[in-house]
Nucleic acid binder design. Structure first.
Length: 843
RNA sequence: GGACCCGUGGCGGAAUUGGUAUACGCAAGGGACUUAAAAUCCCUGGCCCAAAAGGCGUGUGGGUUCGAUUCCCACCGGGUCCACCA
């Protein structure tokens, strides 16, 4: 007896049929039809050699369910798929196995494609993209050149073509070279010497976002600080917009919060401290500090500079300091400390810059100046005014070195010992102090950010070549658009170098090139782009993936953008998600994205959680607890696998894999299958449902629909189980109800529902059929169970008519034997009736 | 140290957002069918009590309320992100 769902015979058949009929192909419509579109997006996968993880299908299925429902509700759905295929693991694999990264990528994509297709997602494969395809990265390179050719207009608060930038006369007066340097210093994509995070294991420079906590995001090794000329992108200019525009989009709150924290805006003031040498008197130098508490300036009893602060070099060179040896020694020690060590040991260390004094602009006092590594070179101005009375760290330092502590804010939060500020509350004192600073030209209101510019250079092979030629005469010259894409040359060895030079530098035939501008011999930039480049705009390419005239036709962008629902991992919150929002805004400012698309790429962002191994520990090869999707599909079929991953728990919570749990879902589908066999082997038992089942059916339609919209995927499956359990006892069953159940099931188990749908005689796909509607009038049953509470405890339950009046309810309550027994003669003080639910009697 | 989140049966988890706690599923025990097994079907199932009645129960202790898993306060435990950020 065939007791189960024969998925082997069915799933592949429908996958082929759907592909043949193109039922998942999104149609490009005129922008005026925008109301009909739905763009659902999952983060396109990195095709690693390990193949698909069970975590991938969790989010793909979730968005598959949402988009299938949208399609059944009549929307023109775009649910695309592609490959984010540049990156280190592939390159490392290629090096180890002596194959070309291109070939490894091709093989991995093939494997991922096979796996993903076997799960039956409604992806529009005709729009498949691959970031390593020259036809794709041509546009990544083109965009980089647009950024190179742009500057940020601080007045308008947006990026503009650099050709429109005004050159100050003073610069112009210094000649062409000065103008060129000035222009280069203003570009949105610029090359600059900077201290970067260097991972000695991966042999690569990392962006701050990739080196959080001082360790390499990929390998976990602790990073070193290295000075290197790097291509950077000026994301800091967008800090405010990246924060402020979050209020116009629907992101999970923790995602928005994390981005805001990462950008780290803090408001305060710059304060200038004049420097005096002990022996030489007033010097020309000024140390500018940043503070969020300008109101505590009167309590600033010393100054601290980061050890790498450039003014220290000046004072060393000019012999203004008396203890040069001590200072150099301290600097050396600081350099050796990795970020991790600095975090572990928070004891305050430092050295006084003897011979140097700073003048507190508020008090006129001369205060000592120190170098200490608890002040970071990369944040604010790299120098602080120390107010030990009101800052814990300054206090620790002051204690360690016996420095003066002066209280300037009372415990009630009122300024004291602060001259003009005395008696003011902190908020007002801040305002007044900033006014004073500005009037006396010793400071100004200022915002600072934790966010740094985006380090965009990588010293590896498997990435997009940065399309710049470096010419001795002309400086940085972009590769002409007609010569794009600039492809990677074949290379003998992909190994990264310890010197921090890209493997491309060794390919002289590729590096040496005529300057596109003057024709003289020049060299190509040999750094490549980070893997975040191609993923920063891929959703735009999905709108028009085969265009070879532009990255996308503006008319198509107008129709499809923004993305309606974007799902991805929390780990990308301060990486891909932040970068791509920035990239989009930059293109938007430069008029490459139509106004109609809006200034944010994603309308709604949600996040999946992890699937853990059995027992709740993370799946890993070393623990041997990895579940392979391929095995699950062979054993249970795609639909059971999909449905189990949804049933496993709330979508936004981690959940452990449970082999027994998947059996339960299998039983559920098997049960429907057997039910359908019974129904189709007899004359159809046409006839009405009982009133209870009729109500349950309509309630289930409502619940399944609302839960899908709310991204709750475990509860609608429970609801469907309850409905099917009920219907399996029904004596009669209308055909439209049977079809309705299949439709509700279709987003979750698309092959299964399609097969039974076809068996019922339907000739077009269930996935193109109309989503069932519920009748609000049928949501309420004709009777309900009235709960009667006495003093908050349930004492009786009676079945009553739904249209029972409050008076009748109270009457029933007071005549209940159990209530009478409980009251024991006492007179109720209060009777509360909650309509359709319960009545509460209290004494 | 800061920000945010979470504590419900043996397990994964429900609970209309202040209204019957433990839906649904798993595992377990008992039974039916079977020579037997698998599959399937039926029954039981928070704790205390022999059962009923009753009492106790959503990490702990308080509070608000006719009524609290839900709201407020304190504490305990766990998690995530950030962190010498001035």
């Amino acid at each position: 007896m065939a007791s189960g769902y024969p998925f082997q015979d069915i799933e592949k058949k429908w996958q082929d049929q759907w592909e043949k009929d193109g039922i998942y192909h999104a149609k490009d419509l005129p922008a005026s039809e925008k109301g009909r579109k739905f763009f659902g997006l999952i983060e396109f996968p990195y095709p690693s050699g390990d193949g698909l993880h069970v975590g991938h299908p969790r989010s793909y299925t979730a968005i598959d369910i949402v988009t299938r429902k949208q399609r059944m509700e009549g929307k023109d759905v775009l649910y695309p798929i592609g490959w984010d295929a540049f990156g280190l693991p592939t390159e490392n694999y290629a090096i180890k196995n002596k194959v070309k990264p291109q070939d490894a990528t091709k093989k991995n994509i093939g494997n991922f494609t096979r796996q993903i297709k076997s799960i039956g997602f409604g992806f529009d494969w005709s729009r498949e993209i691959d970031t390593t395809d020259p036809k794709y990265f041509k546009w990544t390179q083109w965009m980089f050149i647009q950024f190179f050719n742009a500057y940020f207009d601080d007045v308008e608060g947006r990026a503009r073509p650099i050709s429109q930038m005004a050159i100050p006369d003073v610069v112009r007066a210094h000649g062409d070279e000065a103008v060129r340097q000035y222009v280069d210093s203003k570009r949105m994509a610029y090359k600059a010497e900077s201290t970067i995070n260097w991972c000695p294991r991966c042999k690569i420079g990392l962006a701050n976002e990739e080196a959080q906590g001082g360790v390499c995001e990929r390998c976990g090794n602790s990073v070193e600080q290295r000075k290197k000329a790097q291509w950077m992108i000026r994301i800091t200019k967008y800090a405010d917009r990246l924060i402020d525009d979050l209020s116009h989009v629907d992101y999970l709150e923790k995602i928005a919060t994390q981005q805001i924290n990462w950008i780290g805006r803090s408001e305060g003031a710059y304060v200038d401290f004049g420097i005096e040498g002990e022996t030489r008197g007033q010097l020309a130098d000024i140390v500018t500090v940043f503070t969020t508490r300008p109101d505590t300036l009167f309590g600033a009893t010393y100054l601290v500079l980061a050890p790498e602060h450039p003014l220290i070099d000046t004072w060393l060179n000019e012999k203004d300091v008396h203890n040069a040896d001590e200072i150099l020694e301290y600097r050396k020690g600081t350099k050796l400390k990795s970020d991790l060590q600095r975090q572990e040991n928070k004891e305050k260390t430092g050295v006084e810059l003897k011979g140097i004094k700073a003048k507190n602009p508020a008090t006129g006092e001369l205060i000592s100046v120190w170098a200490a590594d608890y002040v970071l070179g990369g944040y604010g101005t790299g120098a602080i005014m120390a107010v030990p009375a009101h800052d814990e760290r300054d206090m620790e330092f002051a204690k360690a070195f016996g420095l003066e502590v002066r209280t300037v804010v009372s415990e009630e939060g009122v300024a004291v010992n602060s001259g003009l500020l005395d008696g003011l509350e902190t908020k007002d004192a801040k305002v007044k102090m900033i006014e004073w600073l500005e009037q006396n030209s010793v400071g100004q209101r200022m915002k600072t950010y934790r966010l740094r510019d985006w380090v965009f250079s990588r010293q590896r092979y498997w990435g997009e070549p940065i399309p710049i030629v470096i010419c001795k005469t002309c400086g940085y010259v972009p590769v002409p658009e007609a010569q794009l894409p600039l492809e990677l040359p074949p290379v003998e060895a992909y190994e990264p170098t310890d010197t921090g030079e890209s493997p491309l530098a060794a390919v002289r035939s590729w590096v040496e090139v005529a300057c596109p501008n003057c024709g003289k011999s020049a060299e190509r930039e040999t750094d490549t782009m980070p893997n975040w480049a191609g993923s920063s705009w891929y959703f735009l390419r999905y709108c028009d993936p085969h265009n070879d005239k532009a990255f996308a036709d503006p008319e198509k962008l107008k129709f499809w953008m923004p993305v309606d629902l974007y799902n991805g991992g929390m780990e990308h919150t301060t990486l891909h998600l932040l970068y791509s929002r920035f990239w989009y805004k930059l293109l938007f400012d430069l008029n490459h994205i139509p106004r109609e698309c809006g200034n944010e790429p994603y309308r709604k962002r949600r996040s999946h959680a992890m699937i853990l191994g059995e027992g709740g520990i993370k799946m890993s090869k070393s623990k041997g607890n990895v579940i392979n999707p391929d095995d699950m599909i062979v054993q249970y079929g795609a639909d059971v696998f999909r449905m189990y991953e949804m049933f496993i728990g709330p979508y936004d919570a981690d959940a452990p894999w449970d082999t027994n749990g998947i059996e339960g879902v299998k039983r559920f589908l098997d049960k429907i299958w057997r039910l359908a066999e019974v129904l189709s082997s007899e004359p159809w038992p046409e006839g009405p449902l009982t009133p209870e089942l009729e109500t349950l059916y309509h309630q289930t339609i409502k619940k399944v629909g609302e839960d899908i919209d709310a991204m709750h995927f475990n509860t609608p499956i429970s609801a469907l189980m309850i409905l099917v359990n009920g219907l399996s006892d029904a004596k009669t069953l209308p055909r439209h109800v049977a079809e309705g159940v299949l439709k509700l099931l279709a987003p979750f188990a698309p092959h299964f529902a399609e097969e039974l749908w076809a068996k019922m005689g339907n000739t077009t796909s269930i996935h193109l059929s109309a989503w069932p509607a519920y009748d609000p009038a049928k949501l309420v049953a004709s009777t309900f169970e009235l709960v009667i509470q006495v003093n908050g405890k349930v004492r009786d339950r009676i079945t009553v008519s739904s249209d029972i009046s409050e008076e009748e309810v109270k009457e029933k309550a007071m005549t209940s034997e159990k209530v009478i027994a409980q009251l024991d003669g006492k007179i109720p003080q209060k009777i509360v009736y909650v309509k359709g639910r319960l009545v509460s009697v209290s004494t």
